[in-house]
Design a binder for these strands. Structure first.
Lengths: 187, 187
DNA sequence: GATTTTCTTGAATGGGCATTCAAGTATATT
DNA sequence: AATATACTTGAATGCCCATTCAAGAAAATC
């Protein structure tokens, strides 16, 4: 084989950072070359094209998100308190410099033109996250209630991912969550 | 003067439709030429450049939105029921073919890179809408509570503008709103 | 009716875009 | 050592981008 191969995971992580910040259209392949350290030919051999790399970045981001949620809900605090922890960590993220919302949500809104496969991929990934919440909630309550509560959580996550751009919004989001999701153990 | 001038409002409306659907980066000036019927020279004389036209489109969209909210809250049903009507009409929008979220929210997410003036413009417009809700709510309750409730409404609007892409989400959003905003007269 | 002003026209410009590919290089195989 | 395989290199390609501007045409002014 040729000179030591590049680290695929590392490249995808760098692509996530770039695409997450600037979006699909505003990220040029020249920026991708800079961000990943790869040459055009290597990128196109490994990922086929810009869309292929973007798709893989979206996949990896979604996997990370799902893992973080699973870890929280399976943690020592239990499922319901775990949900509180997930929501609170999203609020904290929004207070940090360079806050960038959620890669999946940004993609869904940017590429919403009908039939766009990247839009549909992002939607599917968000659905998977909702299903994750639902499956855990079904251990705590009946199926129909679990489904409604999972939808309500997603609705609030989406809201926070946009409202988080507003300065000093953290406390107001905390208050809203406590009122809107009284069935969670906020204490 | 020269041959009959173009209708500025009409041009801006067409620009709104294009930018709202495809976003800033993915809308080319050639598409703008097609959508508005103007020639490049006329566009650049009237709006300076792509950003100038986009800014004016954002302004006009924001004005429409604020007017629709004002009309609803000053309507015969009263302020609180008027808020219910606004939220319900957003749910109905999301069920229609070609649903496109909200132009202000899409812009805020797409152009979130630090210091982007269009991102800041969109944020300011969304703030104005929150202030609108707050000013009306202050007629119904004390100032601090009005502020918290206005924030909560915005959080839910943002959430619905994203969750609305999910098929068959309307009923679930209705249920979530009734649980999360029990101080509104849903009846 | 001549001149100035105001707006429109649309081809031209240069730059940046996604993508390609012939050539190069290091490892594996024989 | 020779050959084949696997990967990297980076300049080159053609297309599309935002923007410009000289030329033209209609109204306003004189």
């Amino acid at each position: 084989m040729a000179k030591a191969q590049f680290n695929r995971d590392e490249v995808v992580e760098n692509a996530i950072r770039l695409f997450w910040q600037h979006g699909y259209s505003a990220s040029s392949m020249q920026q991708v070359v800079k961000a990943t350290g790869l040459q055009p030919g290597s990128i196109y051999l490994a990922f086929k094209n810009k869309e292929g790399l973007f798709r893989e970045a979206l996949d990896a981001y979604s996997d990370h998100s799902k893992k973080r949620i699973k870890d929280a809900l399976e943690g020592p605090d239990g499922i319901l308190k775990g949900i509180c922890n997930v929501l609170e960590s999203m609020i904290e993220q929004s207070t940090q410099a360079g806050y960038n919302s959620c890669f999946l949500i940004k993609t869904q809104l940017e590429l919403a033109a009908e039939g766009n496969t990247l839009h549909e991929l992002a939607s599917a990934k968000l659905d998977e996250i909702e299903a994750l919440f639902r499956s855990y909630l079904e251990k705590e309550c009946e199926a129909e209630l679990a489904q409604q509560r999972a939808a309500c959580i997603m609705l609030h996550i989406f809201g926070m991912r946009v409202y988080g751009y507003k300065p000093d919004s953290a406390q107001r989001m905390r208050d809203s969550l406590r009122l809107a999701l009284p069935w969670l153990p906020w204490e």
